[in-house]
Write a protein that binds this DNA or RNA. Structure first.
Lengths: 232, 232
DNA sequence: TTGTTTTTATGTTTTACGGCACAAAAATAA
DNA sequence: TTATTTTTGTGCCGTAAAACATAAAAACAA
């Protein structure tokens, strides 16, 4: 984790949340904000740690994951820029349940979470900013539980691919997912073994639903994917 | 759903949230609050409906559940008195994803959700009240996903039993769960078929981990249950 | 370059759990 | 009471997906 100096250039771009603050709050937050760089696969925070910061991903991509039974990892959420994360445990009065790891080189601004919490308890718009995000995430978490427990392997992988498209988008060609994941990460998103992620992705490729070139995945037939996601 | 009159007696007991309001807010909310009674298994709200109310369970017990793939129901959350529920979808700008159903005869106070939201956007303590609850629920939802997807049947049922104990408590004898669920409900909490819930509960009984008398379940050996929950 | 680790790929075996069928028992209704 | 529906309890069978094994390919290091 490398600390950097030119942070004030960035604070203006942390948009949605910053605009909810009073001038005084914005100023006092900017004084305690710190900028950090993470390399690919670098740990940002670890499950079990005590939360100290509110994180804002400025550039790059981040996964939030949980070690489950017998070292089986689950990717629970993924973060894109510009998105805030890492605040839930502090708000619930808990330590981190999840770890955050950079998918790719990432720049992150950190704010002391106790300061943010104190501000939220005085600034209803800031508090409501988090209400909306938590409410949305909770809905997604519940949906995800149903998906992961009730759909079959093909449906779960189809869901993961569509989710990645929705979240990180496509490249200029309009087909290629703009995030390149290992088969293992794909498996950890879809709650299956790596071997099954490989097999199922190959099956999709041979059915011309996707095209695979290493870690590049082209979604050739989103309608089929949606159907697989819904059906089985 | 039967509407009732003696609501003002109750509003004083809706404690934690009410105490966060200004005098004016408390007064104006009390004017629009309504009291409703639900019989056992009566629907309180249905998935797909547009949220209109904030619900507060005054007495009774409620399950929040989701119809999954092929009519397989999941019990996602359970509500005890006095607890607020049904606010998430409105806060996220969504319709209900879940249905709420009374486990047993229940009394519920309803407040118009748009009024509550308007108040929260002006009253940071009220907003923070929901932040804390949403943050806690989100943590539980994520944990639950790992449990349901990675643990085996015995572990999942053990979890459900311990969860029910934590949430609804025990009767005076110190052993009997103070909620009587059908095997089907137990299955829907643990993500398994009814037949497997019956089988596994019988297994626990023959191992003297629990004692079963109809729908009454005594937890004889919580340590074993915790161990089963952790191991598999 | 060559060696080493990681990732991808595919085949085989095993098993946990769902699906189905069918009683017995209990709850509810007539 | 008797009839009917719902819930509980077991057995058996099929299968989806994990576990295991092994090899090829790619990435990375020396």
């Amino acid at each position: 984790m490398k600390k950097d100096a030119n942070i004030n250039d960035l604070l203006g771009n942390l948009g949605d949340m910053m605009s909810l603050l009073t001038e005084a709050q914005r100023l006092s937050l900017s004084k305690v904000a710190t900028l950090h760089k993470f390399r690919k696969n670098e740990l940002i925070y670890a499950a079990g740690a005590h939360p100290e910061s509110l994180y804002c991903l400025v550039s790059g991509k981040v996964k939030i994951c949980r070690e489950g039974v017998g070292a089986r990892t689950q990717i629970v959420r993924v973060i894109r820029s510009i998105e805030y994360f890492g605040y839930r445990p502090a708000f619930a009065g808990e330590d981190f349940l999840m770890s955050a790891i950079a998918f790719e080189p990432s720049m992150i601004v950190c704010f002391p979470i106790d300061i943010v919490m104190a501000m939220a308890k005085e600034n209803p718009l800031l508090a409501w900013f988090f209400v909306e995000r938590l409410a949305t995430d909770l809905g997604q978490a519940d949906e995800r539980t149903v998906t992961l427990t009730q759909k079959h392997i093909r449906g779960r992988l189809a869901d993961a691919l569509l989710f990645l498209k929705d979240h990180y988008g496509l490249e200029e060609d309009g087909y290629t997912l703009s995030i390149y994941l290992s088969r293992e990460d794909l498996a950890n998103m879809s709650n299956m073994t790596t071997a099954n992620a490989i097999r199922t992705l190959s099956a999709f490729a041979s059915e011309r639903i996707v095209a695979v070139d290493g870690r590049k995945i082209k979604l050739l037939d989103e309608a089929r994917l949606s159907k697989i996601s819904r059906m089985g």
